[in-house]
Nucleic acid binder design. Structure first.
Lengths: 249, 249
DNA sequence: CAGTGGTCTAGACCACCAC
DNA sequence: TGGTGGTCTAGACCACTGC
């Protein structure tokens, strides 16, 4: 029994949306809504292609995109199955501002520093620019419900985009970068913990010695350029990182 | 000038290795060894296909696999470029044992608990099994150079594989799972920090109140089954997490 | 306008798996 | 042995980019 037979799949050849994408969206929706149950075997690609009036490579492209997303699994000689359980989709490259907003936490930002400064050796290495070259330097305090959550220190290449303090106070850095036409691709992160110094504690409203989460991140755009280097400290009592890692294939 | 022209690319049609894979490996090696420099434009796909005696879809498949790895970027109307800079490949789903070994830290494991126990509500939810069902329970102390690094508490479905204490003391859990034919696919992780309790401090050789890194993880195999749930605490003074996140596409 | 990648077709043969 | 996905071909037309 082919569970896709009862699914009313169809494609619109007059749509500008690619056929394989139309199909993959419909299959994904069917999985999400439980029409295709975990573990169930899809019918074979040839029949599916014939039923939709598509070629097999097109159907394969649709299925492959869902395999890449971790929703389907193919087994040679067996067939294509819906993945067994609750694998959620990988989180986006996380933006603290968006995370807080999604959680209904009413994020706010206080910009402490917004200037240009020569790149230190560490910053230059991270951004791939010569040491001493002018870079954008931003320091912000991120608040939720009026309480400090994190202290964010960021460096960006100078002429990448202009960042006005007003913009920084009303939205997140990633959103500004995307709006400037920068396509974010990946980020290299390092997460650790340490005791708050007196100054750090004061900024975040915690006593000296309190555990803080620390994160360093270099973000790359789709051409591989480093577009941001950040050093952040978070109140561990109020924040933790959640994300999904994939095994490289 | 097509930089791939001077590359001596070739494929062996008698090899069992897929043609697209042979090509992608050669291109990757050329990038890695600097034969293809960052930002350089590859020749177009049609010519490359003709030169190698392959069809265009096959060449596209090779190129696409490198795009997925973040080594190449395609631009419609422009061409295919080598990514600009130092984007390292995503880390594998990290194994503390392997990380330590790779860093020359001579990891060792002391198995504290290796038994079966009924699943608590939390464990049952994580593994997707009924509450109260017997699961494997392991507690380990991970050492490097004889110093405690982390305290690892893990739960696994009962009949997944058998874990002997001797094996657990000589290698990592992930390696044992792979050896048992389990294909790890992804993991959902949560990383935070907190002050060590007295008991935790004693286990790890740190005073009470010291910042500890905490990690909770559910690991899934390629069929989407949860195969492991772990709650780990790390000495923040000796360990931090490093990984790469990709933007979902 | 010419050149590029993006999409699509209608076939083909092979390797692997379950029966 | 039959059915599945894995790979591959030799074309085609379109959309976008840069000149």
């Amino acid at each position: 029994m082919d569970p896709t037979a009862s699914l009313q799949l169809s494609v619109d050849r007059n749509s500008p949306v690619p056929l394989y994408f139309q199909l993959s969206q419909q299959l994904e929706a069917a999985i999400e809504h439980g029409m295709l149950t975990p573990g169930s075997l899809l019918g074979n690609e040839i029949d599916l292609a014939a039923r939709l009036g598509l070629s097999r490579p097109t159907v394969r492209q649709a299925i492959q995109s869902l395999v890449d997303k971790g929703l389907l699994v193919r087994r040679r000689g067996v067939g294509t199955q819906v993945v067994h359980s609750q694998v959620k989709r990988p989180l986006e490259l996380s933006s603290l501002y968006d995370d807080l907003e999604a959680a209904g936490q009413r994020p706010a930002t206080r910009v402490l520093v917004n200037t240009f400064a020569p790149a230190s050796a560490e910053v230059a290495a991270a951004l791939g620019v010569p040491e001493g070259m002018e870079v954008h330097r931003i320091e912000r305090l991120r608040l939720a419900h009026g309480e400090p959550m994190a202290y964010l220190c960021n460096f960006l290449p100078k002429d990448l985009l202009d960042l006005r303090t007003g913009q920084l106070e009303s939205t997140g850095l990633y959103r500004l970068m995307r709006a400037a036409g920068i396509t974010l691709h990946s980020a290299r992160q390092s997460i650790g913990a340490r005791a708050a110094t007196e100054a750090e504690g004061e900024r975040l409203g915690e006593p000296e010695g309190t555990p803080l989460l620390t994160m360093q991140r270099i973000t790359f755009d789709d051409t591989g350029r480093a577009v941001e280097f950040g050093t952040h400290t978070y109140r561990a009592s109020r924040y933790s990182f959640e994300f999904q890692l994939l095994v490289r294939s």
